[in-house]
Design a protein around this nucleic acid. Structure first.
Length: 493
RNA sequence: GAGCCGGUAGCUCAGUCGGUAGAGCAUCGCCCUUUUAAGGCGAGGGCCCUGGGUUCGAGUCCCAGCCGGCUCACCA
């Protein structure tokens, strides 16, 4: 413990005062049959007279977050989850011991009370306490009652204090839970099986990213924290599960920013016999349903922008979007020199030796992405940047793939899966060549995954949705750290 | 990794030109049995992020570092 300040010392002294009164400062169970929220819902509208007549008794517990004393009586506000309820502690109504406990109460202490509901002179629903149980002593003071805790670093490092002091933070994580529960219910209703696949993988696959490495002592091998579950979920499709999903953490050893945390939560799901068009429909249905369930509307506010999640959403091919946004001639799609010239004209920095596909992608990211505010499916990505996606039958240089953009940000990535083992081997080999050429993030060749495909994978469509960014969108948060309970920070001191 | 901004009491923040460290809330004492940012009177509480430097004198100026935020780069 740090050196104690005067407030902490005062509180430690009170532990002995409680013990002398025969009260355990760290007690045991208390049967809270009521919750502040449900009491308010059930009785919050009733008049003073109706409450007096009914004489509703209740029993609840919570943390004291406000305390106003008046000589021989006091009002305390109990925080119970996301809700608060005032309680009235009056000397006349309490035992001598209970009243002495009251005199030593501090902000932050946990108590349990029972009594009956009434309305005060100022018409606030309040519990008149008949019995008081002391549950737990807080030895540190709470943040200031009016401004709460605003220091961002303390909010992230000591999320417990943030949650006590800032009720709106509570609401964000309640919404996160509701979103994830909604996704589960939706997919299970559609016949999906929820599975768990390895977080520690001998070959990190399914995405292009730098992995974390760890070591297993008994096996004497290095293992990678997964960057994606994709290749394992496809193995399960080979094994005969026609619909699977996983909601779990991915780990990427890359920068930290307002939209990147080293560990983040990903939903991936795979549907046998389907293609990416089916996933477009499924995605629209999922999002509009989530919005209605969680927010009660399909029109959402995000950082000052109004977003309409009601389907259908815009579909726009990757190449068409590049041409239309920049009013470019189709020649840039086939002529590398023309693409390079166009990029330079648009003021986009591109290395002179950059590949054609990378030049176009640079143009896309710089000029198209920021415009994709309303939900938009960008379709038909080039094959070079889609190593696991199926080729388009109509154009083998493209893939049956889409990315969903909302508020200028990529929210989902989906494609008809490549199930041709020979084509997949060639794509892996192309990625290997890029690795040889110095691309640290090229996809690794996974021999066992190829063996699985050689056993035959049915036509399958698969999709990944970044849950943290989805929660940001639904809760109107600008930073990913505000939707992750314990975001990654440098260790203290 | 680079640029900009910040770090002062438990919390939220002031601190002028370099001259004895301030407020509100919280805490402690006294008064107060319907308050709600309760009120009244009184009191205590500081590693001014750390380490150097300049100066008679540094919270303040300079240098280096630590931690955080934002922007950019990489990325989902």
């Amino acid at each position: 413990m740090d050196e104690l300040n005067d407030q902490q010392q005062q509180r430690i002294k009170k532990l002995d005062v409680l013990r002398e009164l025969g009260v355990q400062p760290y007690g045991t169970r208390f049967e809270a049959t009521d919750r502040a929220g449900s009491l308010t819902r059930l009785h919050g509208e009733k008049s003073k007279e109706a409450l007096e007549a009914e004489r509703v008794t209740c029993r609840l517990a919570g943390r004291i977050v406000a305390l106003r004393r008046f000589g021989k009586a006091a009002f305390a506000v109990l925080q119970d989850g996301a809700d608060r309820l005032q309680v009235y502690l009056k000397k006349d109504l309490l035992t001598e011991q209970a009243y002495k406990v009251c005199e030593g109460l501090d902000l932050g202490d946990w108590i349990g009370v029972s009594g009956h509901l009434f309305r005060t002179k100022t018409n606030e629903l309040t519990v008149e306490v008949a019995e008081l149980a002391f549950l737990s002593k807080a030895l540190r003071p709470l943040p200031e009652k009016w401004h709460g805790l605003t220091d961002v670093e303390t909010r992230y490092r000591q999320r417990y204090v943030d949650l006590i002091a800032n009720p709106q933070v509570h609401a964000i994580f309640a919404a996160r839970s509701k979103i994830i529960a909604g996704i589960r219910a939706f997919l299970i209703e559609k016949g999906f099986l929820e599975v768990e696949t390895p977080m520690m993988q001998p070959i990190p696959g399914g995405a292009t990213a730098k992995p974390f490495v760890t070591h297993h002592n008994a096996l004497g091998v290095d293992l990678y924290l997964r960057i994606a579950p994709e290749l394992y979920l496809k193995r399960l499709i080979v094994g005969g599960f026609p619909r699977v999903f996983e909601i779990n953490r991915n780990f990427r050893n890359e920068g930290i920013s307002t939209i990147h945390n080293p560990e983040f939560t990903m939903l991936e799901f795979y549907v046998a016999y389907a293609d990416y068009h089916d996933l477009i429909a499924l995605t629209e249905e999922l999002f509009s349903r989530l919005a209605r369930e969680v927010l009660g509307t399909t029109t959402i506010e995000y950082q000052g922008k109004s977003l309409n999640l009601a389907s259908p959403w815009r579909r726009w091919s990757y190449r068409q979007a590049i041409l239309e946004v920049n009013k470019l001639n189709e020649r840039v799609l086939t002529d590398r020199a023309a693409a390079l010239a166009a990029a330079k004209q648009l003021g986009i920095e591109v290395e002179d030796k950059a590949a054609h596909v990378d030049i176009l992608n640079e143009i896309f990211e710089e000029t198209v992405e920021p415009q994709l505010i309303q939900p938009t499916f960008i379709t038909d990505y080039p094959i070079e940047i889609s190593p696991l996606a199926r080729r388009k039958d109509s154009d083998p240089s493209l893939t049956d793939r889409f990315e969903l953009y909302i508020a200028g940000r990529e929210i989902a990535n989906a494609f008809s899966e490549l199930n041709d083992p020979l084509d997949q081997r060639q794509r892996f080999e192309a990625q290997d060549a890029q690795r040889e050429a110095g691309d640290e993030e090229a996809h690794y060749l996974d021999e066992d995954f190829l063996r699985a495909l050689e056993h035959g994978m049915p036509p399958t469509a698969g999709e990944g949705i970044g849950i943290d960014r989805l929660v940001m969108l639904f809760t109107n948060q600008a930073s990913i750290r505000d939707v992750i309970l314990f975001p990654q920070l440098r260790p203290e001191k």
